[in-house]
Design a protein around this nucleic acid. Structure first.
Length: 414
RNA sequence: GUGGCUGUAGCUCAGUUGGUUAGAGCGCCGGGUUGUGGUCCCGGAGGUCGCGGGUUCGAGUCCCGUCAGCCACCCCA
């Protein structure tokens, strides 16, 4: 019997999980402030949704999906990404648009695990459905950017590009295919098969990067409307003071993107895992799934990689505000009452549930990483407790009714 | 799917040209007396050296196989 989690999965426990909690909370809070409602939807969905939505030619669909038959003979796939399912859920609901949705949860891709690449990984994201305006693109990109700012991720780069609308994409694809055929014999085997399946992907191949000088880029084929849209997005980003760089070769790996695409790159991580988030506009996806025309834009951010990029030094605050210590068992009920009261006042408080020596209780307080230990003993009869700052080692007597205030202000006003 | 690296205590690792009872740090448990942790001191528990086979008088150390983990390519978050 092995207790290891399955290949490519991780158990996230304290103290790491505290970092996760902080990041997830920050996202939830920010998305809510930007007006995004929560969407909760299945972790698995019909295989067809992903095959059609993400694109038959993509690596994700061709070799990375967890697909199986359920007991009813249906082909089921664990979601490898969010957007296709979210659009499916929206179409199923018949809700009004525009609609702004945020999600968080695990995604699954069957890959060889390595740093920052797991078979189960968490993404948070938003989808702005039913909105065509470049302002929506800007808002989405800004939300992601503010999120990274909020959690204190340093060295973040925002890359943007435009892939154009279906017409210009087709024109570009034709020209690119022709170009690639011309240099076919110089390309890697992977790139060669992609000439037929997904020529766009060859553009950001690391392997053949040097051979692609002069290859036609999406930007050269944009329609007037797409040029205008892209210009408006860039202008909006400037007005929002969001630093960005244009990357004309940025194409993204999922087929549904049109016009704006963007990526958040953590420059402090190795290239292998420095894409910590990405997204774009997907105006045709709803139709591809069999619905009506619903222009939309969204992103998803990789929590595992973000936590990786934050690193150890991103300071975590202590886990508890106060650990209550029962100096003698007669006063246990008073201590229990105090814990209850502090918790009701939104302070993080805890205590030992059974009798233990004062020494052992202090040890627990320390182990639990409490900011303060509060001793409930003889002084309780005088209406006071002893509060010990576990970091500084200093102690003061504080009136019972002033405890929560004292914990909040850290005794500074004393 | 391809390539590289690594498997020794709960964790991180050291183990000399193969040679007696396999070590350290951290962690864990107990103690340094009675209401004080973390720091300091003392003591203790804990390992079929991933697994299987081979070479040898003798293997943690060499060889083969196997399993597992890590990292990279590819791709992506």
């Amino acid at each position: 019997m092995s207790f290891r989690p399955p290949k490519g999965t991780d158990d996230i426990l304290p103290p790491d999980s505290r970092r996760w909690r902080r990041v997830l909370r920050a996202f939830d809070d920010l998305a809510e402030r930007f007006g995004y409602d929560l969407i909760v939807y299945p972790v698995f969905d019909s295989t067809e949704i992903f095959a059609r939505g993400v694109g038959e030619g993509t690596d994700v669909v061709q070799k990375e999906m967890y697909t199986f038959k359920d007991r009813g003979g249906r082909s089921i796939t664990l979601r490898p990404e969010a957007t296709a399912s979210v659009v499916r859920a929206y179409l199923a609901s018949g809700s009004q648009i525009p609609m702004k949705l945020a999600y968080a949860g695990p995604m699954f891709r069957y890959e060889r695990p390595q740093a920052g690449r797991r078979r189960q990984f968490w993404q948070v994201g938003v989808e702005y459905l039913g909105e065509d305006s470049p302002q929506a693109d800007v808002e989405v990109i800004e939300l992601g950017y503010r999120f990274y700012q909020t959690i204190g991720l340093e060295g973040l780069e925002v890359q943007v590009n435009s892939l154009g609308d279906p017409t210009s994409r087709a024109a570009h694809r034709g020209a690119l295919t022709e170009f690639l055929e011309g240099i076919r014999s110089h390309l890697s085997e992977d790139s060669r098969t992609r000439i037929e399946t997904n020529p766009l992907r060859v553009l950001d191949s690391k392997e053949d990067h040097s051979k692609l000088q002069g290859a036609p880029l999406p930007a050269e084929f944009l329609s007037d409307e797409s040029v205008e849209h892209y210009a408006a997005v860039k202008q909006g980003l400037q007005q929002a003071s969001i630093p960005f760089v244009e990357n004309p070769r940025l194409v993204r790996g999922l087929d549904y993107y049109t016009r704006t695409v963007f990526e958040y790159v953590a420059t402090r991580l190795d290239v292998a895992q420095n894409a910590v988030g990405g997204g774009g506009r997907y105006d045709q996806l709803a139709e591809v799934l069999g619905g009506r025309h619903v222009p939309a834009v969204g992103f998803s951010l990789g929590i595992d990689r973000i936590v990786l990029a934050l690193g150890e030094e991103a300071g975590l605050r202590p886990a508890l505000d106060a650990f209550i210590i029962v100096a003698d068992e007669q006063r246990r009920q008073a201590a229990v009452g105090l814990v209850r009261e502090l918790r009701a006042r939104h302070l993080r408080a805890d205590m030992e549930p059974g009798p233990r020596s004062v020494k052992a209780q202090f040890k627990s307080a320390d182990r639990r990483q409490a900011l303060y230990a509060i001793v409930v003993g003889d002084e309780w009869d005088d209406g006071e407790v002893t509060i010990r700052d576990l970091d500084k080692g200093e102690e003061v007597r504080v009136a019972r009714e002033r405890i929560s205030t004292y914990l909040r202000i850290g005794g500074e006003a004393e």
